[in-house]
Design a protein around this nucleic acid. Structure first.
Lengths: 346, 346
DNA sequence: TGTTAGCACTCAATATGCTTTAGTGCTAAC
DNA sequence: GTTAGCACTAAAGCATATTGAGTGCTAACA
């Protein structure tokens, strides 16, 4: 598969793809002959193009048209981009994320900035806390037969659950339970709460053993609920900028993908799995993408890490004819900033 | 403006509009002549149509086409619908909202059900609590210099704020402050917290007077934040079902309206203001709608009331050529159900 | 042997003109 | 007041040229 291209073919292929990214029109031999510094006539270029077509890098939409890149062509182009990415200097102008008090506001802003800077549709998942520790638990009386459990998880994420009790619980009991919970559970992750721990707590609770079950269930629920990460999106309408995506069928599919968010979860999982190879940025071209029926799209994702094992995914979705270079640069800049803000924060 | 139409004109106009709602095509005199039970020839209908056009109820897109309703025509039709709405019996099949533990999940579901049952784009605002009472306040130590204030508002809506303190606050002080807060603030709405109340609390707090300021600020912030209501949307892609809305320009405008949500807020405000006249359902046709540049759309809104002064707005947006009758029926059924669930809930 | 000029050819896109169709308004008769 | 009939209109559909951008191939050239 990975034939080695002659230097000339390499240059011509790159020129074709870049031109196509710019214009969105099939590119002909004359254009390449003029645009490159190879000083070759269109006829020569034509010969080379015929070769490249045979090798599967480019294709003719119809006989009398220029060539456009195939998925293989795009892959060639993107791989080269990824190889060449050292420390990017310069690139797009500074991007500013403002520090926000709530983490989800900040994420919403990141999505927005990303969408605006790339002109593609952007998404970001809120971090998952698979192994984040319980920092603090507080039970309080809300009503006569209702106790509220408040759970603070590392990173000051706060969750609460209301527990209905059969009997009235007095303040003193609540106080005891509070102490019990905090001495036994603080510092633990969900996975670390063993049956042993629970048994031990029940023993200590004495006559309130029954209540302990309910409370623990509530705590576990609260933490788990947290792990149902949210997804924020922005710039879905950017797809209308690209004629190849804005026909009725494609547009409906894409927009409802963004509205429903279920499909976006598959991107997030995929991105988290494939993890941190090569600067953490991953490019899925056409059929490589996690979507069905999205063969006209490319997806670029990256994983961010706010520390404390708080990881999430950002991504953009756009046409295959996408400015991959700008997208990758913008994304990595944005991530660096996001992670810096998070670092400063604690 | 409000000329009185002869019975015959009335019937013809209604027939024209209903036919147009069905087909989306300009309707000609022949069609009306056949469809109505007036037993009039197309020629007679033509004469009447010419009159109706002169009066501004219908218009010809071009000389050799049938007529389509103007905004005034739609208004006539909708007003008549609203007049005639008594206790609707029958109508669309039962709609089921499942009770959800979290109120926002339920609202999301309402939006979804509404969108699916009407095939238009739906939105719902989470309730605003302008005058909801503070039920319970709880201060807890999170960190050495961080205290967390948890505020429970009527309806078990829970909000929290982290307060950074200059000095370390010991448990005893916290306990005192807790009592102080709850005795003074419980049962009050935001508006009812007077400067007098605050002064009084400071006096009682003694050496912790400074801290009281911070805490009250946090509480007020928490409650206010709550009043920044959320808007949930569903079925934005339904607009692609209607050719008159799915051209590039309209679609972009509509979808980004749904994405940004800012514009939707203006619908919510408008609907809340115009309040509960006529079964609470309001119809904005074309230029009457709160949007700019949305002259091809109609908006139908209603206000729901979950008790405890928790009011919000639901709405749908669709083409002017909308099945107003079904929309109004579906909406009022859904609202009744929503309010019933809320009632059962407390 | 690689490069290039030249030419015949292809196919999409655009323009052109013709026909059909669904509607109108007006007039004259019932 | 109602209606049949007719001339008229504009959009939409359809077939048929025209144009233009691009190709592949061949033959000549360095």
């Amino acid at each position: 598969m990975a034939e080695i291209l002659s230097d000339r073919k390499h240059k011509i292929l790159k020129a074709i793809i870049q031109n196509y990214l710019d214009t969105g029109e099939p590119v002909g031999s004359r254009t390449i002959s003029k645009d490159t510094d190879l000083n070759l006539s269109s006829a020569t270029i034509r010969n080379e193009m015929a070769d490249l077509e045979e090798m599967g890098y480019i294709i003719q939409p119809h006989t009398s048209a220029g060539r456009i890149p195939t998925d293989k062509g795009y892959r060639f182009y993107v791989d080269e981009l990824i190889e060449g990415r050292e420390e990017e200097i310069g690139g797009p102008a500074e991007i500013v994320i403002q520090k926000q008090d709530k983490i989800d506001r900040m994420l919403k802003q990141v999505a927005k900035v990303l969408a605006n800077n790339t002109n593609y549709a952007a998404m970001i998942s809120s971090p998952v806390f698979h192994r984040s520790k319980i920092k603090f638990i507080q039970l309080s009386q809300v009503d006569k037969f209702q106790v509220m459990a408040i759970v603070v998880v590392e990173g000051n994420i706060i969750k609460n659950k209301v527990i209905s009790t059969d009997e009235e619980v007095d303040g003193e009991t609540l106080l005891k339970l509070n102490v019990l919970l905090n001495t036994n559970l603080n510092g633990l992750t969900l996975d670390e709460i063993s049956l042993g721990t629970i048994a031990q707590m029940k023993a200590q609770a004495g006559e309130y053993a029954l209540l302990v079950d309910d409370v623990i269930e509530a705590v576990v629920n609260a933490v788990q609920e947290d792990e149902e990460y949210e997804i924020y999106t922005s710039g879905a309408t950017n797809i209308f900028r690209y004629p190849e995506l804005s026909d009725q069928k494609n547009a409906t599919a894409l927009i409802s993908t963004f509205e429903e968010k279920n499909q976006l979860r598959s991107i997030v999982s995929r991105s988290m799995e494939n993890g941190n190879e090569k600067n953490g940025i991953q490019v899925y071209i056409g059929d490589e993408s996690p979507f069905q029926n999205m063969k006209d799209c490319s997806v670029v994702t990256a994983t961010y890490d706010l520390g404390n094992d708080m990881k999430g995914t950002v991504g953009i979705i756009g046409p295959k004819r996408m400015d991959y270079e700008n997208v990758m640069k913008t994304m990595s800049k944005l991530l660096k900033q996001l992670e810096q803000i998070a670092k400063k924060d604690r």
